[in-house]
């Protein structure tokens, strides 16, 4: 495959007891691209992210990331290869402070003895502060993460991925449950962080999708229904029928 693609998903299939949640899916994401995946409930959007990050093992097909086959890797190796994934519900360490949440995500000292020897050096602190500013949480570093608002938790999880500087960042409904002003800030944040990396975002909010997407993929019953820029997808009769029409 051509090397212009950061991510090349080809003929990807996964079946759960005969039900094909993802069916022969082929998808290419370019470097520096922000791709949004939309589709009705049960279309297989989250499953695609699960497959890429290794949470679910594919029944068939291949996932190549910068030319490296990911389907055989365990989860932590996929992360180390540069794939970061945010879960749908904010998945943060509620009992730790914002600072500690970011520190744990810092990509050093990932082995047992590495983590025993890990020191919070100036580099680490600087990086944590830099990320905290990016995700609008620099005033809350000492705060226990469980006490943050829902939107702030979403940002924190994005920050926990950013600190690892992944080449591919996958976000599952990053603005779910956010207020209008938080959405604004998130859209701006995503615009800023998509520089220099590829991103895949699952989202339902069409206004939000319009703001951020470079290209949109519509999934339906585990297959690609349509793909292209927002303009093209929005006027696709098939898409209107299964998804946008309601």
């Amino acid at each position: 495959m051509s090397n212009d693609f950061a991510l090349a998903v080809e003929d990807l299939t996964v079946s759960f007891d005969g039900f094909k949640a993802v069916d022969n899916l082929t998808l290419y994401v370019e470097k520096n691209e922000l791709r949004v995946i939309i589709g009705p409930n049960g279309a297989g959007k989250t499953t695609v992210l699960d497959l890429i990050c290794g949470k679910t093992k594919a029944t068939g097909g291949s996932i190549k990331f910068n030319g490296v086959e990911l389907t055989k890797f365990p989860e932590h190796r996929i992360v180390q290869a540069g794939v970061g994934r945010k879960f749908q519900t904010p998945s943060i360490y509620e009992n730790l402070s914002v600072l500690e949440n970011l520190e744990i995500s810092y990509p050093k000292g990932r082995s047992v003895f590495g983590s025993l020897m890990f020191e919070r050096t100036q580099d680490v602190t600087d990086r944590i502060i830099e990320i905290a500013e990016m995700i609008f949480l620099s005033e809350y570093l000492e705060k226990q993460a469980g006490l943050l608002s829902h939107g702030q938790k979403q940002w924190l999880e994005i920050g926990m991925l950013l600190i690892q500087d992944p080449a591919l960042l996958m976000l599952d409904e990053p603005v779910a449950g956010m207020s209008v002003s938080e959405r604004e800030k998130t859209a701006e944040l995503l615009g800023r962080i998509s520089n220099g990396r590829s991103m895949i975002v699952i989202e339902h909010d069409m206004e939000f999708v319009k703001r951020i997407a470079h290209k949109v993929t519509v999934l339906h019953q585990g297959k690609v229904l349509a793909e292209g820029n927002m303009e093209k997808v929005q006027h696709d009769p098939k898409v209107i029928e299964v998804y946008l029409g309601h």
Binding site: H76, V79, F87, Y93, P107, V112, S115, E157
Partner: peptide
């Protein structure tokens, strides 16, 4: 150490730790 904080994190959200690049079993 960071390992101690990782153990707390693991009790809370094991998947998040795993998808932050750690081989959870080793800890």
């Amino acid at each position: 150490s960071k390992l101690g904080r990782l153990l707390l994190a693991l009790r809370d959200k094991e998947d998040r730790v795993r998808f932050s690049g750690y081989d959870v079993a080793n800890f």
